[in-house]
Design a binder for these strands. Structure first.
Lengths: 194, 194
DNA sequence: CTATCTATGTGGACACTGTCCACATTAGCT
DNA sequence: AGCTAATGTGGACAGTGTCCACATAGATAG
């Protein structure tokens, strides 16, 4: 039933973002009285935390999938760059295809949410780090510039994602959107390969 | 009184972010019955929109102030770069000194909020554009790379600001924070001067 | 096999929110 | 002076998170 509540919460978040994951509605969905939820969660935030973790997991899954589609063996410069691009693309695509879940993923400041690890330990951040490590290994990014570079890279993609989904840049045309996303990836590439 | 409600709303937002700007509380602060607000605002969102605009304005003011502190005449390459840095610094500093207001500034997707212009027409985005234009004028940024470059730049700074204030990177130590911010600005500089 | 304990769901309540309606007051214009 | 438009008031309703006391079922111990 805990799982049922979380599943209901995820659907609510998918449809309306973190604010839409309302405890009473989730209990209604699973067919139980509101208070029953308090046997499984201390409060609404604890439910939202689970929803958040689920959203992060789906994001990590998408990043993994998109990365896996890139051919070329590890260490190949072009392939490494494409894999980093795949990570950014998956991130921004997730934000647009599931804006509610994306917002929910970052709704809780608390969370140890560098991304709660899924069973395999993959988190969005760890996937990004791996891609950047490969970039160093491939000789594209110099080692002395590697440390901490994941944060600006993450921020750039995250900023574009939020600005274009929930921020002032939402309601751009599809083509404008694609252009800004491409420009964002090029911007990152520019900064790294130098 | 409309102004009073907005002022109360701004203080609420300052203290607790957009969710804290609750209509009834604002009317309480100005000493009037809740419904009185409906003579001035269609609903809560319309009040929040004003708060949002006020927050954007304060952000623009800070950016202007920080930029003005940079010496060196227009067109000087080093000065132009420092002015762009000042804009980013002001942005991230605002996010940290006024996290509630910063969040409120971006709370409403609706808004024509590329930043509602203040009396002088300055908005955060227009200030950024001006700084980038100067960078072109100074020969630091090549003209053919100028178009639309404001979006990745904005996104990078915005991403760092949100991740470190409301996101998973909050609760970093002061020194880690400063380092990430410096790294963010360097990252942008790297991408532009190439 | 019975008795007790623990986990889980129920009913009812409270404070709080945004919002609507009907009413009172007040200021300004004719 | 009297009408009109603007503004504030009182009361209400639905919806929310959360707390309390109660019921019930399932396991566990004697």
């Amino acid at each position: 039933m805990r799982a049922g509540l979380v599943a209901a919460g995820v659907e609510l978040a998918r449809a309306g973002g973190p604010d839409a994951v309302v405890l009473r509605e989730a209990t209604r969905a699973v067919g139980v009285v509101p208070n029953a939820a308090y046997r499984h969660f201390a409060d609404r935030d604890e439910l939202l935390a689970e929803v958040c973790a689920a959203a992060m997991l789906e994001l990590a899954d998408r990043m993994t999938a998109e990365t896996a589609r890139v051919r070329g063996k590890r260490g190949n410069p072009a392939a490494a760059q494409r894999r980093l691009g795949a990570i950014g693309t998956a991130y921004m695509r997730f934000a647009h295809e599931e804006p509610g879940l994306f917002a929910a993923a970052y709704a809780l400041p608390e969370q140890h949410a560098y991304g709660t690890a899924d069973e395999s330990g993959r988190t969005p951040l760890s996937l990004l780090r791996a891609a950047l490590d490969e970039l160093v290994e491939a000789g594209v990014l110099s080692p002395e510039r590697r440390e901490g570079i994941e944060y600006p890279v993450w921020a750039t993609v995250h900023g574009t994602a939020t600005l274009t989904t929930h921020g002032p840049l939402r309601s751009l045309s599809e083509s404008q959107l694609r252009q800004i996303e491409a420009q964002t990836l090029a911007f990152i590439g520019n900064s790294l390969t130098q």
